[in-house]
Amino acid sequence: MTDKDFKLLLKRFYELQAERVETYHLFDEGHQAYMKSGPHYDFIQYRMLVHEITQAFNGISKEIIQMKDRFQEVYDRSDLAEHLEKIQELEKEKLSLTARLQLAKQNVQDHPSQESHKEEVQQLKHKIIKTVEAISEVLQDFKYDCEEIQ
C-alpha cells in the first residue's frame, strides 16, 4: 500500500465522521418533529426514522471497523487501530445516551410536574457533552499520530 492509499483511507475516515454528525442532526430533527406530534405521538413515523438512523450508523461502524483492521494488518499501525476502536466505543455510548435523552425529554413533556425527569435530562445532556469531548480528544490523538504520514 502506498502513501496515497493511506491518505485516501484517512480522508474516508473523516468523511464517515462527518456523516455521523449529519446523521445525529437528522436524528435530532426527527425527534423534535416526533415531540411536536404529542400527546398522540406519530410513533410509526418515528420508528421508521430510528430504523433509518440505525442502518446509517451500522453502515458507518462497519466501514470504520474495516478501516481499523486495515490500519492494524496492512499498515502495522496498532496505534491508529486503537484510536478507531476507542472512537467506536465512544460513539456507541453517545448513541445510547442520545436515545435515553430522547426518552427522558418525552417523559418531561408527558409528565411536566415530575422533577426527576428534568434532572435526568440534565444528567444525560452532561454525559453526552463529556462523551463528545472524549471523542474529540481521541480524534485529536488520531490526527496527531497521522501527521507524520501527511
Rank of each mutant, 00 (worst) to 15 (best):
T2Q: 13
T2R: 12
K4L: 15
F6D: 09
F6A: 11
F6H: 08
K7H: 14
L8H: 14
L8A: 14
L8N: 14
L9V: 07
L10V: 15
R12P: 13
R12Q: 14
Y14D: 14
Y14V: 03
E15A: 13
L16I: 10
R20M: 10
V21I: 15
V21A: 09
E22F: 14
E22P: 12
L26F: 13
F27K: 09
F27A: 06
Q32P: 10
A33H: 10
A33W: 09
Y34S: 05
Y34E: 06
Y34I: 04
M35P: 11
M35W: 05
S37R: 06
P39M: 04
P39C: 07
H40V: 05
Y41N: 05
Y41R: 05
D42M: 03
D42I: 01
F43I: 09
I44K: 12
Q45N: 10
Y46M: 10
M48K: 10
M48G: 11
V50P: 05
H51C: 00
T54I: 02
T54Q: 12
T54P: 00
T54N: 06
Q55E: 13
Q55Y: 02
Q55L: 05
A56T: 08
F57D: 03
F57Y: 03
N58K: 09
G59Y: 01
G59E: 06
G59H: 09
S61K: 05
K62M: 00
K62G: 01
I64Q: 01
I65V: 11
I65H: 03
Q66A: 08
Q66W: 02
M67E: 01
D69Q: 09
D69M: 02
R70H: 00
F71T: 00
V74I: 04
Y75V: 00
R77N: 01
R77W: 01
R77I: 00
A81G: 04
H83I: 01
H83T: 04
L84G: 01
E85N: 09
K86A: 03
K86T: 06
I87S: 02
Q88A: 09
Q88M: 08
E89A: 07
E89R: 07
E89W: 01
L90P: 03
L90G: 01
L90R: 01
E93W: 02
K94S: 08
K94A: 10
L95I: 02
L97A: 02
T98M: 08
A99T: 11
R100L: 13
L103I: 12
A104H: 04
K105W: 08
K105N: 12
Q106L: 10
N107P: 04
N107I: 03
V108M: 07
Q109W: 03
Q109L: 12
Q109H: 05
D110P: 05
H111I: 04
P112T: 04
Q114K: 10
Q114R: 11
Q114W: 14
S116R: 09
S116E: 13
S116A: 12
S116M: 07
H117E: 10
K118A: 11
E119A: 03
E119D: 12
E120H: 08
E120Y: 04
V121C: 13
Q122E: 15
K125F: 05
K125I: 11
I129Y: 12
I129E: 15
E133C: 04
I135W: 07
S136G: 15
S136Q: 14
E137I: 08
V138W: 02
V138F: 02
Q140M: 06
F142Y: 12
K143C: 09
K143V: 02
Y144E: 15
C146N: 11
C146T: 13
E147L: 11
E148G: 14
I149V: 11
I149N: 06
I149M: 15
Q150I: 07
